[in-house]
């Protein structure tokens, strides 16, 4: 059998095996969110589906090149004591078909993955950010300072939501759109314009992050889709993702995604506590 045929068969076999393994990985969490170890928001789902699609595309490419390296080491390897000395008998410096297919295929693959999942996914993300697609959104003002997350709920007159231990905490009702209004400044030292730095607002389980930039107000709409909490899944936490000074590792806050009834009860408690 010629080398091309052997290589082709091996490529297909290993690619199929690889794709089966990839499928097991993708399906290891609901809605194909295996690579993200589960996703609990609508926009996070867009990201993980893009990730999944790229796994399908990248795997045969990986197998092709990696197999070519191993195949050459096994098939074209000449031992030191081999009688085959001197230059290789097959000498070719070009192969128009191979080069042509390579160039066309690499352009097509790159354009394809730019269109989908990138551009198509972005359209979904952009649409999810439109106010008219988020009726009755819960507004949460998020203030990042060195080094604390402060959450306010203006619709419910909660200035700074705290748990029983006095720590900042984020409560969200499930399946209701949330509008995060993100700002970076220090409300306790508002006179000092130099201490505001860039932070990153990230809840790993929600599958999305956005930087919080001093002097700018940014908005992020998303809808939590699962009942969860930091205690149940440590990926459900607010974590600063952009380095912001010595306190950066500790700049996190607990998150609770609860039912509408539980949320209403929590709001009452916060109001009663005068937060």
């Amino acid at each position: 059998m010629s080398d091309v045929v052997i290589f082709g068969i091996l490529w297909i076999v290993f690619s199929v095996l690889g794709e089966l393994g990839a499928k097991a990985w993708v399906d290891s969490a609901p809605q194909g969110s295996g690579p993200y170890f589960g996703v609990a928001s609508n926009v996070g789902l867009v990201g993980v589906h893009a990730f999944d699609f790229l796994v399908w595309v990248a795997l045969p490419i990986f197998v092709f090149v990696a197999l070519m390296i191993v195949f050459s080491m096994v098939r074209f390897h000449v031992r030191k004591d081999s009688p085959a000395t001197g230059d290789a008998p097959a000498q070719f410096r070009n192969n128009k078909a191979f080069v042509g297919i390579w160039v066309v295929a690499s352009i097509l693959i790159n354009v394809l993955i730019w269109l989908h999942p990138n551009a198509s996914g972005l359209e979904t993300v952009f649409a999810a950010q439109a106010p008219q697609n988020n009726p009755n959104a819960l507004v949460v003002d998020v203030t990042a300072r060195q080094w604390e997350w402060i959450f306010s709920y203006p619709q419910y007159h909660i200035t700074q939501s705290l748990n029983a231990a006095g720590q900042d905490v984020l409560y969200l009702p499930v399946n209701r759109p949330v509008k995060f209004v993100l700002r970076s400044y220090d409300p306790f030292h508002a006179y000092d314009y130099q201490i505001a730095v860039i932070h990153g607002f990230w809840i790993p389980a929600f599958g999305i992050k956005l930087d919080v930039v001093p002097g700018e107000t940014r908005q992020l709409y998303l809808t939590p889709t699962k009942l969860t909490s930091t205690e149940q899944n440590p990926m459900t936490r607010v974590q600063c993702s952009e380095v912001c000074g010595p306190g950066h590792p500790y700049m996190e806050a607990n998150v609770h995604v609860v039912t509408a009834a539980q949320f209403a009860a929590w709001v009452k408690g916060q109001q009663a506590a005068g937060n």
Binding site: G47, A50, I113
Partner: peptide, 23 residues
């Protein structure tokens, strides 16, 4: 470098990047 390059595909994809960035 093949692995380095192929993981770059994931980072170049904006929806996925919004999760992977800074990790």
């Amino acid at each position: 470098f093949l692995i380095g390059g192929l993981t770059g595909l994931f980072l170049a994809d904006v929806p996925a990047n919004l999760q992977l960035h800074d990790t």
